[in-house]
Simulated assay, not measured.
Amino acid sequence: MKSALTTCPKIGLLWRTDLPTSPLDVQSARQWPIMAALRELGGEVEAIGYADETAGTTRDRLLTCDGVMVWADPISDAGDRSRLDPILREAAAAGVSISAHPDIIAKMGVKSVLHATRALGWGTDTHRYADLEELRALLLERLASGPRVLKENRSNGGRGVWRVEVADRGGGAQPIVSVLHAARDSVPFKIPLDALIARFAPYFERGECLIDQPFQPRLGDGMIRCYVSEGTVVGFGHQLIRALLPLPAEGVDSPKAQPGPRVMQPADAGAFQSLRDDMEQSWIPGLQHILAIEHDELPLLWDADFLYGPKDDRGSDSYVLCEINVSSVAPFPPSAVRQVADAAYRRAVAAHERRVAGRGTTASPA
């Protein structure tokens, strides 16, 4: 049986949209550069607009593809992935290459990865609360060292992330804590510690966990987003952020309260070479080992968000991982486009050949 490619692989690019079919103006979409690069490589590319209301149609279209790249946040105003992920699992079982399999997202793209990988060089004093009783027993003790950041396991865009610090110990009475949500335009509020803890009861009842990290004093220096394709760093983005920082005197609507633009830089940007080396040589292999992820299971496009940690004795920066994004990485630096397209095309070709070989084997006499 020949395993050579007889037709070009078909690759779908799926993202959430209000349109029930392919987005009409794909050239204006953030995914367009990758789409164009895939076509240059020889792929047949199809833009697929996803909405829960047309999930069945999406399923049928995905099953005609050899590979699919997916952009869909786990939590958004448009919905979650509860209907999309089963479709992606079905497509993967049928031999379609998925840019980030839902099972891999469940390992990498959640806040519990911060606890699982805390012993790597990107880790910090990270704790995991499995239930309300553990949170009630340990949070006040950990707040004694300074502000902490509590993170719901499945959160994104600032949703489900809070800075918490003691505002008044109460002289033996109930401590009062100051709380600031990381979502845009949030303002700090004060609340009894027990009342704050009680707010998490429904969350734990859903079987989720809560992650606790120390607040990083250098947050004002910005966040570094390290873009990765499989196990290779493909670019960086540096952004001055306002989430979890005190509000300026001018208020939440003032220009000073708004995040700065994300400045994209290529993978060889001099300022981040030590971070790139750590990622490629140590931290990504360590992540794979801890989470039992093979190289070809790594997402085609993902990012790791870092905050600056303390400088070492030589004045060099350290980096603290604050989250990994897998579900919907956009925008991305221009330097990432070709490498991501190459990896997507390679996986789609391999999937195409396996499917062709499987059909040939099935049709062959015993």
Rank of each mutant, 00 (worst) to 15 (best):
residue 159 R to M: 05
residue 334 P to K: 08
residue 51 A to G: 13
residue 140 L to V: 06
residue 61 R to G: 08
residue 286 G to M: 10
residue 185 D to G: 10
residue 167 A to Y: 01
residue 142 R to Q: 04
residue 303 D to T: 14
residue 21 T to E: 14
residue 44 E to T: 15
residue 219 L to W: 00
residue 187 V to M: 14
residue 185 D to L: 15
residue 1 M to I: 08
residue 68 V to P: 00
residue 29 A to I: 09
residue 128 R to E: 02
residue 63 L to Y: 01
residue 282 S to P: 01
residue 65 C to A: 12
residue 264 M to Y: 11
residue 271 A to E: 06
residue 329 V to I: 14
residue 158 G to A: 06
residue 69 M to Q: 11
residue 191 I to G: 10
residue 142 R to K: 05
residue 306 F to N: 00
residue 28 S to L: 14
residue 201 A to R: 08
residue 199 R to A: 06
residue 354 R to A: 10
residue 28 S to P: 05
residue 161 V to N: 08
residue 130 A to W: 07
residue 185 D to C: 09
residue 347 R to G: 08
residue 144 A to L: 06
residue 3 S to D: 04
residue 222 G to F: 01
residue 174 Q to P: 00
residue 185 D to E: 08
residue 261 P to I: 07
residue 328 S to N: 15
residue 133 E to V: 04
residue 48 I to P: 01
residue 63 L to I: 00
residue 35 M to N: 04
residue 193 L to C: 05
residue 278 D to Y: 10
residue 95 G to W: 01
residue 239 Q to P: 01
residue 73 D to W: 02
residue 14 L to A: 14
residue 223 M to Q: 13
residue 197 I to M: 13
residue 292 A to R: 10
residue 61 R to I: 05
residue 295 H to M: 10
residue 325 N to P: 00
residue 200 F to G: 04
residue 181 H to K: 14
residue 312 D to F: 02
residue 106 A to V: 11
residue 157 G to C: 09
residue 263 V to M: 11
residue 329 V to E: 00
residue 249 A to E: 12
residue 151 K to W: 02
residue 45 V to R: 04
residue 211 I to T: 11
residue 202 P to V: 09
residue 274 S to L: 13
residue 7 T to C: 07
residue 252 V to S: 08
residue 363 A to D: 09
residue 155 S to I: 03
residue 262 R to I: 12
residue 61 R to A: 11
residue 310 P to D: 11
residue 250 E to I: 15
residue 187 V to P: 13
residue 309 G to D: 01
residue 322 C to S: 09
residue 109 G to Y: 06
residue 217 P to G: 05
residue 133 E to D: 12
residue 322 C to N: 09
residue 62 L to P: 00
residue 291 L to P: 01
residue 29 A to V: 15
residue 281 Q to C: 11
residue 214 P to I: 08
residue 345 Y to E: 08
residue 359 R to H: 11
residue 47 A to T: 02
residue 128 R to F: 02
residue 335 S to E: 02
residue 333 P to R: 14
residue 19 L to N: 14
residue 313 D to S: 15
residue 282 S to I: 05
residue 90 E to A: 06
residue 72 A to Q: 09
residue 342 D to E: 15
residue 157 G to W: 03
residue 67 G to W: 00
residue 357 A to S: 13
residue 324 I to C: 13
residue 239 Q to G: 10
